[in-house]
Write a protein that binds this DNA or RNA. Structure first.
Length: 571
RNA sequence: CGGUGAGUGGCGCAGCUUGGUAGCGCACUUGGUUUGGGUCCAAGGGGUCGUAGGUUCAAAUCCUAUCUCACCGACCA
């Protein structure tokens, strides 16, 4: 490709709204342009990368025995009514009407369509298992699209769905997809981790997320430093091996004026926050005989909403109680609340339950208790795991300690079971002639998000540094002042033709630009290998080779440059 | 959904307080100059200042409404 025939679209400055590096670089390097909130046009360079990611995904899906299909983006509402998600999915599901006033949705995912397809096309156990996938545009009307391509409303997703007669078959395919996903992220060259994930509203099923590690990630991932344990922090079990000491002091009421937070109280009393407990009030579930539930955590710990909302006595989704309600119950405002003499159900986190002689709010404004103790001072309570695991905690698998890192979720695989097949009555006849509902798995990869995630992990101050496998071009040819030097033009064209003939993807910068402009653009775009042709080396029949990742440069004979590039690329 | 901020040429911004007929840098076009790391000079093209209404002799500027966009938040009492 010659730049003169191409839309390079590089920019010196990034738009003010681009906050994270991948978003800035995607604009500056001319990969995408925003059309409206969460909607992006893929420019030629961006589309090349996107297609390469898709090609790798496609290849690995095929290797894993999945078969490609393509389903409509626009889907009839009755399918969604049948599955129940017309009511459950919420405003992220974009609903539209056609000219006959019939309801449709823009597909955020395709469980309904595929289940309907299988129901019509597959009627015998002999046709199973079956694993179908597509790589296609999805639409989710996100509450808050952000970070450019990372969380856009329209995006490209690879979604696969597998169908099985029994769980054992599902588990086999699931394991195969798990390893296919690992292959994909390894081939793309990303630092990633598969993590045990929250099974969400579906419940009970096995689920793994695949996260690319990056500081800009929106999820917190808990890892063991000594085993391969990794879990989303939403789900990671916080264990407590400490044994509660016996009480040693008497419960004492003290004045704590203006001390509203754990930090205030701890610094006023000159103690660690671990010696305090904090008490939060959340709304109780409807079938609980109370309005609110008190949750008690150690001072340095944070509530895990997901864990808490799974407890039957607590409203799901979790909602914090209003201060007025709490005040009516305790006679005290936020900042002075505690479990002693409290007239509502109390749930104590395991770690808080292992504390003795702790400090807590006294349910009297501006006062706290010191030397409070479980059982002696608070009798009726329930112990649960309701906090976030944090760095330094023991790993739940018993091996090593936990580290926390940020992750970008780029893949999610799921053993759905019969959630969709049951409500949509999707089954086959078994060997014994009985109708049996199928077991399903689903497997997603955010293809467009991978592009952004790859940039988050691979860039420097000059621009993107693409992994070889997804670079938009493999080689850049940078001829200097070609318009003034026929021999440079001739050499550049000769090298270009030779590389093209080998099937190598080359961007030939034939613009009449100064050298600095070309160098900067090619580095910004992040092409792995560059061939620089200048008058300086011409007399000796030499050109220069430069590697984007390492910055290594070498000068080689014109006659050898094609072979050098070949060996670098490995073709 | 709550909070904050922003809408002025393709991008980045100034002008708004104190109303007076729209400007700077980048990009673009033309001519010249320069040529191994975003040259320099000159001349140009491009904006109904988000939209609608109001106040005024006069509105980018003041008032009202509305739309759009971004960031933060939506546990830590």
């Amino acid at each position: 490709m010659r730049t003169s025939d191409y839309l390079l679209a590089t920019q010196k400055e990034s738009p003010a709204e681009a906050e994270i590096i991948s978003h800035q670089l995607m604009i500056r390097a001319g990969l995408v342009r925003k059309l409206a909130s969460g909607l992006y046009t893929w420019l030629p360079t961006g589309l090349r990368v996107l297609n390469k990611v898709a090609a790798i995904v496609r290849e690995e899906m095929n290797n894993a025995g999945a078969v490609e299909v393509s389903m409509p983006v626009v889907q009839p509402a009755d399918l969604w009514q049948e599955s129940g998600r017309w009511d459950d999915y919420g405003p992220e599901l974009l609903r539209i009407k056609d000219r006959h006033e019939r309801d449709f949705v823009l597909g955020p995912t395709h469980e309904e369509v595929i289940t309907s397809l299988i129901n019509n096309e597959v009627s015998s156990y002999k046709q199973l298992p079956l694993n179908l996938y597509q790589i296609q545009t999805k639409f989710r009307d996100e509450v808050r699209p952000r970070f450019g391509i990372m969380r856009s409303r329209e995006f490209i997703m690879k979604d696969a769905y597998s169908f099985h007669l029994d769980m054992a078959s599902l588990e086999t395919t699931y394991a195969r997809m798990h390893s296919a996903y690992c292959n994909i992220f390894e081939r793309i060259g990303l630092e990633y981790r598969p993590v045990v994930a929250d099974s969400g509203s579906i419940g009970g099923a096995v689920s793994h997320e695949f996260h690319v590690l990056a500081d800009s990630g929106e999820d917190d991932i808990a890892f063991s430093n000594a085993s391969d344990y990794a879990a989303n922090i939403e789900l990671a079990e916080a264990i407590c091996s400490e044994i509660r000491p016996e009480p040693s002091g008497d419960l004492t009421l003290i004045d704590t004026p203006d001390a509203k937070t754990i930090e205030d109280v701890a610094s006023m009393l000159n103690i660690e926050s671990t010696a305090c407990v904090k008490t939060l009030f959340v709304k109780a579930s409807e079938d609980t005989n109370a309005d609110v539930i008190a949750l008690v955590l150690r001072g340095d710990h944070n509530l895990n909403e997901i864990k808490a909302s799974k407890l039957s006595s607590i409203a799901s989704p979790l909602e914090m109680a209003e201060e007025a309600v709490v005040k009516q119950l305790t006679n005290a405002g936020f900042g002075s609340l505690g479990p002693v003499n409290l007239n509502c159900p109390i749930i104590v986190d395991k770690s808080a339950a292992a504390c003795a002689d702790f400090v807590c709010g006294a349910n009297i404004d501006e006062k706290h208790y010191v030397n409070a103790n479980w059982d002696r001072d608070v009798s009726d309570y329930q112990v649960e795991d309701v906090r976030n695991i944090q760095a330094g905690d023991p790993s739940p698998d018993g091996v090593g300690t936990i580290e926390i890192r940020k992750g970008i979720e780029v893949g999610h695989i799921f053993q759905l079971g019969d959630k969709y097949s049951k409500v949509m009555n999707c089954g086959v006849l078994t060997e014994s002639g009985r109708h049996q509902v199928l077991q399903m798995g689903c497997y997603g990869i955010g293809v467009s998000r991978i592009v952004a995630a790859a940039i988050e992990q691979n860039h420097d101050k000059y621009g993107v540094i693409w992994p070889d496998t997804i670079a938009p071009f493999q080689v850049a040819i940078i001829p200097m002042n070609m318009h003034k030097s026929p021999r440079i033009a001739e050499t550049a064209n000769k090298i270009y033709d030779a590389l093209i003939a080998l099937g190598i993807e080359v961007l030939f910068d034939d613009r009449k630009e100064r050298p600095g402009v070309m160098f900067n653009d090619m580095e910004l775009i992040g092409i792995p290998h560059s061939v620089i042709i200048g008058e300086r080396n011409m007399d000796n029949q030499l050109v220069e080779y430069k590697h984007r990742q390492t910055g290594d440069k070498s000068t080689v004979a014109i006659s050898e440059i094609v072979d050098l590039v070949r060996s670098k690329i490995g073709v």
